[in-house]
Amino acid sequence: MGKHRKLNKGQLRRVRANQQKRLQQNDLEQELDDASLGGAESGIIVARFGQHAIVANDEQQNFRCNIRRGIESLVCGDEVVWRRFTGQSANTEQGVIEAVQPRRSLLSRPDYYDGVKPVASNIDQILIISSVLPAFSTQIIDRYLVACEDIDITPVIVLNKADLLTDIEPAQREEIEAALTMYKDIGYEVLSVSAKTNGGLTDIKTLLQNQVSIVVGQSGVGKSSLVNALLPDIDADVGDVSSNSGLGQHTTTVATRYPLPDGGFLIDSPGIREFALWHLDETRVAWCFIDFRPFLGQCKFRDCRHQPQDPGCALQQAVEAGDLHPLRLYNFHKIIESMASSKPSRAIPRGSKK
């Protein structure tokens, strides 16, 4: 391939003149844009759709806004500075998002193709929804717990369809109850509810008050039914968003923030059905098992894999002494095995942090 020819002085002058003209035009468009905007207001992102977002003001009114090009990342729950159009707009946009405030927390989801993608911000707690049917699984719960501990957001374990406990085999019921007791002993909040009978909803509503929460769960656990029970007017709310933004039909596919009747906010994100963990390394996963922490660093060998055949393993010794539940160590190894098989070839694990 031949070398590029250098521009002569005349060509350089023309290039610089064209660049300056474009800058002046952009400045003029910015001035005209600013002239049609009101003063700065605070708001929170209800949902984002491509280059537009729904912003709720302090009175919980929703506005569809453009997003300034300089904003690199914007997700549901972000606190923003925005300005509304004061004149008659020819399009459906009602304002412009100018800036994003620093986030207190950020929930991200590893994506096989796009890396770690932000989903929602400024969350106080994550509700991990499990159920009696389909089959209750501590392995799935532990995967969610690792994801919560990694991003330092409080998890709450919720057993839905608790009314079915009386319909299953006694051995299966005892297994579920023992597992829930195990999580309580570790220190996690555990609730049993039934979206069908409304059993336990008072407890969960109390837990949600004045908090920003998001629900996650596998298909079939009744997550949507629980969300509808907690948000009885969600269809009306979606309609309001649609009338304001023209984008209500998308609220079932993106993270959407709803005010709760008794205070607080609930983020419904149908896309968060599971968290991949391949972006973490093995030591980070072990640290995210909070009941492992008293024993980490005490193994005889630094590269201990915590298997039964590893001599001087502090975790294995803790299990034998009754200080660590064997199910948790078993689930840890199953997670490590699954990470190796699901990790994209180009993925770079995130290092350990404490």
Rank of each mutant, 00 (worst) to 15 (best):
K3Y: 12
H4P: 15
K6Q: 14
K6R: 15
G10K: 14
R14H: 07
V15A: 10
A17V: 02
A17G: 04
R22S: 07
R22K: 11
Q25I: 10
Q30R: 15
Q30V: 05
L32S: 03
A35S: 15
L37G: 05
G39S: 13
G39R: 09
I45H: 08
V46K: 07
A47E: 02
Q51W: 01
H52T: 15
A53T: 09
A56D: 07
N57E: 07
Q60K: 10
Q60L: 09
I67E: 11
G70V: 05
L74V: 11
V75P: 04
D78M: 09
V80F: 11
V81H: 06
G87F: 03
A90R: 14
A90W: 06
P102E: 09
L107G: 01
N122T: 03
I123K: 06
D124W: 10
Q125K: 12
I128K: 08
V132E: 00
V132Y: 00
I141Q: 00
Y144Q: 06
A147K: 05
I151R: 13
D152L: 11
I153Q: 09
I153L: 09
V156W: 01
L159M: 11
D167A: 02
E169Y: 04
E175A: 15
T181L: 13
K184R: 15
S194P: 00
G199I: 02
L201M: 15
D203V: 03
K205M: 14
T206L: 11
Q209W: 03
Q211D: 05
S213R: 05
I214Q: 03
Q218I: 00
V227M: 02
A229H: 00
L230R: 06
P232D: 05
I234P: 00
D235L: 11
V238H: 06
H250Q: 14
T251Q: 12
T252L: 04
V254N: 11
G263W: 02
G264E: 09
G264S: 09
F265K: 10
L266N: 06
G271A: 14
L277I: 04
L277F: 05
W278R: 04
F289R: 04
D291L: 03
F295R: 06
Q298A: 09
C299E: 04
D303P: 03
Q309F: 03
L315S: 07
V319G: 08
V319Y: 11
P326Q: 08
P326A: 09
L327H: 10
L327E: 14
I336F: 02
I336T: 05
E337Y: 01
E337T: 11
A340S: 11
G351N: 12
K354N: 12
